[in-house]
Design a protein around this nucleic acid. Sequence first.
DNA 1: GTTTGGTTTAACCATACGGTTAATATAACA
DNA 2: TGTTATATTAACCGTATGGTTAAACCAAAC
Lengths: 205, 205
Amino acid sequence: MAKTASSKEAILAAGRREFAARGFSGARVEAIARAAGCNKAMLFYYFSSKEKLYRAVLAGALGEIFAELGGVVHARLTPERFMERFPGIYIRFLARNPDLPRILVFDLIRDPENFSRTMAGIFRENSEFNPQRFLGMVRSWHDQGLIAEEDPLHFMLNVISLSIFSFVGRPMVEAISGLRSEDGEAFYRARIRSVVRLLKKGMLK
Amino acid sequence: MAKTASSKEAILAAGRREFAARGFSGARVEAIARAAGCNKAMLFYYFSSKEKLYRAVLAGALGEIFAELGGVVHARLTPERFMERFPGIYIRFLARNPDLPRILVFDLIRDPENFSRTMAGIFRENSEFNPQRFLGMVRSWHDQGLIAEEDPLHFMLNVISLSIFSFVGRPMVEAISGLRSEDGEAFYRARIRSVVRLLKKGMLK
DNA sequence: GTTTGGTTTAACCATACGGTTAATATAACA
DNA sequence: TGTTATATTAACCGTATGGTTAAACCAAAC
């Protein structure tokens, strides 16, 4: 680390980890710098403030998520195929990048306005995921009588809730149940199976 | 405010609002005291540290949530009736107390261990919601062939995800869709309808 | 080998913040 | 009314933290 030209990347990566673990206010600029293998001043040299670094991290995280999702939407699937594939792709992707849902949810609560603006920015620049196209797809599924849900917004909320909250809510459910669920791979496999079944059975007409 | 004997309550209430809005590290002790109409030192007089106050707030929030849920479980419903009633009760309750899901999710991310411990404490003292009884109920539904999901943990994750993430994720979905959803009552009514339909159709055998 | 431009550092700075203290006000009650 | 226990406050305190600065380092260009 601390090798020229990669310092900026190292800071971004370390920032992502720190912000995901402690949220914006909990994150310490100095800790980020240390984790990136450089001096605190470097961070300000490249990002000029904690806030700016945070925004860069958030934008990066959102960008990665939607890049990943772009493919599923481009594929023009049937709703059945969509519900079979979407949870798996999304859940596995988040499992590989557990910092992303944390940052996302943290920011969603702390500052919904900022979150919305950042997302709007992503869509404007990065065309890999086109929300209007996705919405149109969902609406046409309903018009063709393929899915029961008439409101695309609630369709999305259902699909996304089940995927994202798998991560955030897991400790909660474990605490209620007292059961420590199997770690890693086994848990995600079971989770995907359950979500896919629920969505296919519950949303298809 | 600042009237004897209610100061402690005022601080707890103000703390709940502040922690919900900014998370633990983002919350300012001084801001809480001011919002409670008293001096910062009062806060330490009653709660001795920010951390202790936070724990009290979290415990209170969780206690209220599970007190609310206790009734549904005690009622020994059929799975069909359960899925008809649970989302409505839960979503409406959270809508009336929007700080609760925020605090909960904040803490869930920041410190899952602490969250688990707090919840275990709640169950030990407050018997209004009995997790083992609830799990038993779900398991028996499956054994009787009434529901498809064989794993009570994933049953719970599904049900809870759909309810809680309605709140947290709403700005996200609005940002994707570009549609600003109807406020308050109309949104929650639609949300409950969608979740109930999905659960009944998707989880009942 | 000297200039030049981006990169890196150590040492600072101001302040915001959690927490303390010692003194005062208030209520309870004998 | 005097005594005691609880509430409440203003004034502090030490430190952690975001941010700055000025100087040094170092590669490439000339």
